[in-house]
Design a protein around this nucleic acid. Structure first.
Lengths: 205, 205, 205, 205
DNA sequence: CATGAATGAGGTTTCATTCAT
DNA sequence: AATGAATGAAACCTCATTCAT
């Protein structure tokens, strides 16, 4: 079962998403196709499991990276998020393909969207409590920003398997400029972690 | 041959991109499958032809929309580009699917990228001649912006078949803020078309 | 094990005979598939057990119904047999499917045939002893009649899940007309149960 | 395409109906499986084509046999119908399996039923015009009789691949006794073909 | 006695493409 | 130029059964 997911990941990274067929996974994992169906209801379930892994790993990375920040500002938050993704993609190149091409069934799309909303809500709560965003800032702003980060990463990785750094930098610029419209002066200038009014909480399941 | 492309477009818009099989196209066009191969080398060639149509139509729209502007600024340019795309998608819903899911073969990807570069170069030439961007602005800036617009549209249409207007607005905001970093004061404030130092030239084939 | 057979029955009645897979049975019985093989040699053995249940239940019904008759004639016997089956099918709709589609392996076919012969012999012995059929009537006549009743029921239930009453009535008419060719005058006119020369014996296992 | 149907027939007669898989047909016909789908929409279409052949051949046999009768009575009609089927089954043993196990999809069931109705109507029209059945005889009687003949044949062939002649004879007895209840005296005694008031017409499509 | 895990064999269907006519 | 016919390859999935634990 571990082996199956590993094989699926390897296929995705060495070939492309469309190559992720049950046959190919089975062959690479060196198990009969029927064995796949012991662990996964169908092909979509394999993709979903892969994406879930990705999401979990990314959430851990993100949480830790944010917690480790020395200075909190909308810029440093945007930067740290993008950096976490980039680090994650570097460690597991399959994530790039999975994340941007794997939203294949309605079920998976819904799960990814739900997760984006959860993240946005978490950042919204934190940024407001910490005084980085104006008190009347709508959650929507963070949802759009989250989507934008997703889009920037898509752009950066679409044509460049390593993630085009110019696109990444430009993307961060764009997002920061958008967020700063809703930021407080400290949210723009930055607040030292020791002066922070709120604690960053890891997301619960 | 016209009929074949028409059929292909209808399939893409009524079903989805994966439904664009040679058999489906032939059936809808009411020609035998073998006949497709008289006009197109293979399935990818059909997709490429479809995308070429899209690109041509969009380029015409874009060119005309830019030429018709009353006031030129980086903001009005960004806005008019996004508007042109939105209008194009509204007129031909198949474009949404084609554009964001049709980049299927390396050949097609290369063509799309080449076209983005061409557009970016054109805008770069115009904006510099018209004094909207600082003279030392690199073409890169406009390529990144062009990619960003593409990404914003992708975001806006990914989850919402009509194009999420909030995402579109936020996206324009982001792009404008990025471009204004490289803009001249008139590029920010806007220049009346009658005072324009340069002419906007339609792109040649 | 009771649960397994119950599950199998439910599947047959809610879906159809082809849905009676080991997996489906195990799932519905909430036991692992492997556990089925503790109680049954293979899939056919489950079907056979199901049919055996059906046969036993039907035999009990039949025996009691015949024993309860007030007047004995070939007509009343044919009628009571068909009625007993119809009542059985009404009580256990799974029997319809099982009986007419369940003869799947040579083993099961042989068992069903053996049972038909047994029933025919029993009726033959009784009818002769009771003076309802001419003394020289061959067992064959009753075997054919038994098969005919089976056929009539098949006909009646093949197209109509409730059993087409017109077909049932016509079928009884046909069988009676056939049996009356071999019947004695009392076998046609009917004999009161109190005047009966022979006792109806329940079939032994 | 001829070869495909031939192969399908051979499989049905040498193995059984469940062995009629696309793979098996293709193998025996020595064509790739994909070729089947050039001529048949799916597996059911193959079965349907087989049954259609059967029906057509049987209808021809039936029509000719009835037309060749010297004496017309309900008995001779019942006999000739059963004889025609028996001769058909002898010539093409696959028909037995097809006819009694091939009614697998709703579509096929409907077609078979429609054909039975057509035949019944045809016999009804003829027998009334020829004065063999009482003028007020309902079509229903002939539909039930047609079903009964079907049932008798099923019985006769179910356990005996050659068709048990005792069952066939007994079956004819049953059907005749049923039909004679609705027959006119000439319908019972028989009418010479030269004295017949009506002509037997082949069924049109 | 119970069962998680594994699996070989097979099921139906679709695909893009070629080629002789 | 047009096309009917053919097809190799692959897609996803289900099945009954075994066996080591």
């Amino acid at each position: 079962m571990e082996g199956i997911l590993l094989a699926a990941e390897q296929i995705v990274v060495r070939e492309d998403f469309d190559a992720l067929s049950t046959r190919a996974v089975a062959e690479r994992a060196k198990v009969p196709v029927a064995t796949l169906y012991q662990y996964f209801a169908d092909r979509d379930a394999i993709i979903a499991a892969l994406i879930d892994r990705h999401v979990s790993a990314m959430d851990v990375r993100l949480t830790e990276a944010v917690a480790a920040l020395g200075t909190y500002s909308v810029r440093s938050l945007a930067q740290v998020v993008v950096d976490a993704y980039v680090a994650g993609y570097r460690a597991h190149p399959s994530y790039v393909v999975l994340w941007f091409q794997g939203r294949v069934s309605a079920d998976i799309v819904a799960r990814v969207r739900e997760r984006t909303s959860r993240l946005a809500a978490q950042f919204h709560g934190f940024a407001l409590a910490a005084g980085l965003l104006k008190p009347d800032t709508d959650v929507l702003v963070l949802e759009v920003a989250a989507d934008a980060i997703d889009g920037v990463l898509d752009m950066a990785y679409r044509n460049d398997f390593e993630g085009d750094p110019r696109v990444l930098d430009a993307g961060i610029e764009m997002i920061v400029s958008y967020l700063e419209r809703h930021a407080t002066p400290p949210g723009i200038a930055g607040v030292s972690s020791s002066d922070l009014a709120a604690r960053w909480e890891p997301p619960g399941e």
